[in-house]
Design a protein around this nucleic acid. Sequence first.
DNA 1: GTCTATAGCGGGATAGAC
DNA 2: GTCTATCCCGCTATAGAC
Lengths: 192, 192
Amino acid sequence: MKPATDPQNDTRKRILDIAEELLLTRGFNAFSYQHISSVLGVRNAAIHYHFPKKSDLGVALIQRYHRRLNRLAESCSGEDMLAQLERFFEVASSYYEKDKQVCPSGMLSTEFHTLPEDMQGEAVVFIEAMRLWAVRIVSEGRAQGVFTFQGEPETVGMLLFAALQGALQLARVDPVYLHDIKKQLRATLGVA
Amino acid sequence: MKPATDPQNDTRKRILDIAEELLLTRGFNAFSYQHISSVLGVRNAAIHYHFPKKSDLGVALIQRYHRRLNRLAESCSGEDMLAQLERFFEVASSYYEKDKQVCPSGMLSTEFHTLPEDMQGEAVVFIEAMRLWAVRIVSEGRAQGVFTFQGEPETVGMLLFAALQGALQLARVDPVYLHDIKKQLRATLGVA
DNA sequence: GTCTATAGCGGGATAGAC
DNA sequence: GTCTATCCCGCTATAGAC
């Protein structure tokens, strides 16, 4: 068990936190080590000590998203399916409320062609995990009779995932998208 | 009436065509005047003659998308609503088939925070026009009894728009998204 | 309308002192 | 683990010849 404050990894964690904010607001190509170091109050080279190449930082960010996703999906697996759907929505909403961020999958897939190869590999498996979470919620929800809809659980899960990703991006232009699409997804799933 | 080949504007048009390809594959921040000039076989400065600032090029691209959208939406306004829905799908599919491009609204909204101000303004009105087209199709389709669904036409139109935008992006990671989400959207609209 | 040449900046990355 | 200093690159943009 590690202590609550770990001096060894404190800087590394703060770099990741700042980089995450920059990734989800500006994108991977549009932020620099200078942005991080100026916020952190250190010099450029200090960031390179923790993450020699920028793609190392990118890979670490995606892996952290992936671990968080696994933890969240597992932690709410005992709740009823309506609550789990709202958890899924809350993930999206929490991004928007923090400086109109988009979701990681939306930024990574949009920038995909310009990402370093090691980041592309991590992005693929992370996005696949997101899809599986959405499909599981929809699938179990229908099996329990909580959701009713036209079509297959697999494709409805993908619709849920893709629509929220699009909604988060379009919310930057008009905030109405996020609320209205969540509402419509509930209607499409036959709840409320 | 202009001649079929207009030497005056030929270079300008070819710049726009190459820039469009680059915008929808790499994004606005990730392509440069060098990319365009090397493909075109001219020098960097020649591009600056036609578009002094990069944001001038970006604004011209968005305005061209907007004009195309207006033309397309008007040209198929006489068709039956099922055909108009397929036209909407075809726009998305044609982007994907050309080097896995995303739709302009998806790229512009994702990069929104980093775009020059004049491009942001053009992006807002273009994206609003896209939304209105989607809502019109869904709205008229239900009025004619062709579509049946839970919820309001306005929010279903937004779902249609946002889901296809997300699907095009996610299709870069797994091509199954585009086909499956089109299929699910048809099911959600109660057709087939 | 396109060229050469260059200014000027910001980016990622490294070497070596402390 | 952070610093200073520096390299090299690619980018936007401009000046002036042709």
